[in-house]
Amino acid sequence: MVTFNYETEFKLDHENLLEYWVDTIVLNHDYSIGEINYIFCDDAYLHKLNVEFLQHDTLTDVISFDNTLGKLVSGDIYISVERVADNATDFKEDFIDELHRVMIHGVLHYMGYKDKSEEEKKKMRAAENKALAAFN
C-alpha cells in the first residue's frame, strides 16, 4: 500500500495514478509492495529530521527510512517540496518531473540501488529515468 501524507499546504492531485506507478516499478523489479508512506513537508521539517536522525545539519530534498524485509518494500519517504522546487529551478526541470524523480529515488534505494560512487549514481539515474519514462 502506498499512502500520501502532508505536513504542508502542498497536495498531490493524482495520488491513485502515482500509487499505481510506484506499485508497477516495484513489481517490475521482482519485489512486492508492503507499506510505503510518502510524507510531503517543508525545508524546516525535513532539516529537523536530518539533524535528529542522521546528524546532518544541511537541507535536503528527501530522506528515506527503509523498513524493507527481503522482497517486501516498505518505508517512510520524507520529501521537502520547497527543496524539490528549488532543485527543479536549478536543474531547469519541471517541478512535477523533479518531484516524481525524488519519489521513485527513495523506492529504488529500498530495492538495493545506491548512489555513493559515480558508478552507483549512473545506475540509480538510469533506473530513475526508466521509471519516469514508464510514468509518462
Rank of each mutant, 00 (worst) to 15 (best):
T58C: 14
G70K: 11
K92V: 06
N87Q: 13
S80R: 03
F91I: 00
S64M: 13
E98C: 04
N50H: 12
H105W: 03
S64W: 08
K121Y: 05
V51Q: 04
K114E: 05
L99W: 05
Q55T: 09
S64P: 04
T58H: 14
D86S: 12
F95V: 00
E52Y: 08
T89F: 02
Y110F: 13
V102D: 00
T60F: 09
Q55L: 12
T89L: 05
A85R: 15
R101D: 07
F53S: 10
Y113A: 03
H109L: 12
E82Y: 06
Y113P: 05
G112K: 01
Y78H: 13
Q55G: 04
Y78W: 14
H56D: 14
T58G: 09
K116A: 04
K48T: 11
G112F: 03
L108S: 06
G75W: 10
H47I: 02
T58N: 13
A88N: 00
L49R: 08
G70C: 08
A85P: 00
G112V: 06
G106T: 01
V84R: 03
D66M: 10
V51W: 02
D90S: 03
L59E: 12
D76M: 09
R83T: 13
N67L: 15
L49G: 06
H56G: 05
K92T: 07
A88T: 01
D94Q: 06
G112N: 01
D90L: 08
V84S: 04
F53K: 15
I104R: 02
D97I: 13
D97Y: 13
Y78N: 06
K116G: 01
E52D: 10
Q55P: 00
L59F: 12
I77A: 12
V81I: 14
T60A: 15
K71C: 07
L69M: 13
T89S: 02
A88E: 00
S117Q: 03
K116I: 06
H109D: 07
D90Q: 03
V81Q: 02
D76L: 15
M111I: 09
F65P: 00
K121A: 06
D115L: 01
K116H: 11
H56K: 15
R83Y: 09
L99P: 02
I79R: 09
A85L: 04
H100P: 00
N87Y: 12
D97A: 12
E119C: 01
D86W: 07
D76H: 14
N67A: 15
L99K: 09
V62N: 11
L72P: 04
